[in-house]
């Protein structure tokens, strides 16, 4: 027993664990972002029936990323995963203008939830490579992000399938946590 505890002390103190919640409508690209973060193959991604979790080490943090399916029938279960969240990541399909209103409604529902109060918000404006996609700044306006005063927020344009922009978003997330 004694030896074991000594060995334990010798080990470096474990990195701080963070809990990231990855939400958004179906087909926004949540699972793709998750797989990109974990550097996994993104060729066979099917709609998520339930949730996926991945742990990634970044900036001395261990990030536990929870990706919950965005289909309409799974959305009611989102609330079960709000507890102990450190960062809320919301993924929007910038090219899907038809559902812009729907995604906004879902986002504000999240922001109004007690358990997610004052939790920093990162919005990924995904699919910037598509021809008729809205740029991040327009999307921020359309979603009314500038009116958010009760928490830190950031919008990050990205192309998940190429991996551009994803890392930058994560860096902001880690920085925000460090500041706290």
């Amino acid at each position: 027993m004694g030896l074991l505890s000594i060995l334990r002390k010798l080990r470096s103190s474990p990195e701080k664990e963070l809990r990231l919640l990855l939400l958004g409508l179906d087909n926004a690209g949540k699972t793709t972002i998750l797989k990109m973060l974990a550097a996994e193959d993104i060729n066979h991604i099917t709609p998520t029936a339930g949730f996926n979790i991945k742990s990634v080490i970044a900036d001395g943090f261990k990030l536990n990323v929870w990706d919950i399916g965005g289909q309409r029938k799974i959305r009611p279960y989102w609330k079960n995963y709000f507890e102990n969240t450190d960062i809320l990541i919301y993924v929007v399909d910038s090219a899907d203008k038809k559902r812009l209103e729907e995604t906004g409604i879902e986002l504000y529902e999240l922001l109004g939830d007690e358990k997610l109060q004052a939790i920093p918000l990162l919005v990924y404006a995904n699919k910037q490579d598509l021809p008729n996609s809205l740029p991040a700044s327009d999307l921020a306006q359309a979603l009314g992000l500038p009116t958010i005063k009760d928490r830190a927020w950031q919008i990050q344009s990205c192309v998940a399938i190429q991996g551009t922009g994803v890392k930058e978003g994560m860096e902001w997330a880690c920085k925000t946590i460090k500041k706290k």
């Binding site: 339930g50 279960y77 079960n80």
Partner: peptide, 12 residues
């Protein structure tokens, strides 16, 4: 209720 939430994780 709603046990289907683990479908994806179990399939994996």
């Amino acid at each position: 209720d709603d046990v289907i939430i683990v479908t994806s994780s179990l399939t994996k």
